[in-house]
Design a protein around this nucleic acid. Sequence first.
DNA 1: CAGTGGTCTAGACCACAAG
DNA 2: TTGTGGTCTAGACCACTGC
Lengths: 254, 254
Amino acid sequence: MSLDAGSSKALYRQLADILRSAILRGDYAPGEPIPSESELIATHAVSRTTARQAMALLGNEGLVIIGHGRRATVRPRSPVRRLARTRLSRAERQHSGGTFMADAAASNSRPETETTIVIEPADAETASLLGVDEGTSVLQRRRRMLLDGRPAQLATSYLPADLARGTQIEQRDTGPGGIYARLEELGHTLSRFVEVVATRMPLPAEIDALQLSPGTPVLIVTRTAYDNDDKPVEINRMTIAGNLYELAYDIPAN
Amino acid sequence: MSLDAGSSKALYRQLADILRSAILRGDYAPGEPIPSESELIATHAVSRTTARQAMALLGNEGLVIIGHGRRATVRPRSPVRRLARTRLSRAERQHSGGTFMADAAASNSRPETETTIVIEPADAETASLLGVDEGTSVLQRRRRMLLDGRPAQLATSYLPADLARGTQIEQRDTGPGGIYARLEELGHTLSRFVEVVATRMPLPAEIDALQLSPGTPVLIVTRTAYDNDDKPVEINRMTIAGNLYELAYDIPAN
DNA sequence: CAGTGGTCTAGACCACAAG
DNA sequence: TTGTGGTCTAGACCACTGC
């Protein structure tokens, strides 16, 4: 409960340990303030730097929210929304405005989408995923989705420009059922999706766009849609706030 | 390229921006050293604290690896292993020592597993997932898996103790096909799995067990195995180093 | 041994939040 | 206005790495 100056463990780490234990034990409830810097300085006889190092450590662990001018608080467990990937079934896709809209409807939230559409040559990675040559013209639909006014995820779709030319896929509003419905109308009947899930810390632009607080990682989901010839027809790269979402996958046992 | 003391942006953030851009641009290759604190101090006329704040920021973003006594280096992109969840098919399960072994075999690595087996009363969350009453005796198989001597993931299986009593599931070595094969032999034919994927920053114990460097989030996968009556028979909670793994899911388009 | 990063202190001034 | 956290400085001593 008190600091040991002789310990090989740094003072600020010991201090962080004390606070972390207290938080995990529930001494400070989610949303409640933890001791201020001044209090830590007084209680544990350390310098301000040491107190701040301890706080910063907990902030980067995602345990506390530190904000200018207000006391640091225990990070509330945000209500986690579950994104069920079964929503990719054809039936689900068709009577909704795409997977995001389906998820929004399921969670009783007001969805908004900002869309930017550009055509650019494919970089090496995108080209490889889409099965086209590097430099091939690719249509990018960059979207920022919000739920109830709060940023939820970033998503960019990539399709060969040839394939989308002159179709509603080039429009802001892709119509009922979204891109996938349009693709099937074009004769690209979809056979399966592959989603690859990874995680990393967000870049500053992503922190900004998703309004993330320190210590919040993002989920990076790369979805590839394959047609009946097992040819990739669309790539969707998603960046999802790790504190707000979890992904659920259903896997048959055979 | 140079710092602006009048800017509203903190000096250390400006400095971090400069370094980050240089790294992302490729000026410093992965694994290569970035400027030392002394160099930053000399080049940009800042105090050591400011230089260190900038470095720490990049460290927490996972862009650089900072180590005592050695120069900070650009974080090398670890070879990412893909964990294909199709490996959960019955055919795959049966001729391997479980999903971890299957993945290891697929990646030509030498797998090791440390296993601890305990029986404990279920906490509220586990009870709810397993569909049993809180406090019911639950068998826990805690495993730490290593590939080529390096920690790869932590996994704990939870099964109702009644169900596992007297079976090989209570042993360290669960035999060919692992737990799932034993469950099916016991009459619990598996119908499906649900995997829920989330991410967060690791706790100190996890950092230690997985040898994670700062700025590395973990993937938290909770897998539930259901039998033919759609009753959960096993829960598997996995903690996976986010810099080493990605998960691949195959989703039929229907 | 020299160079690098790790920890810690004391003190200063600023910016934001809330009463 | 008061208290809180944000930024920055100068300086000191320590511990690890690698020549």
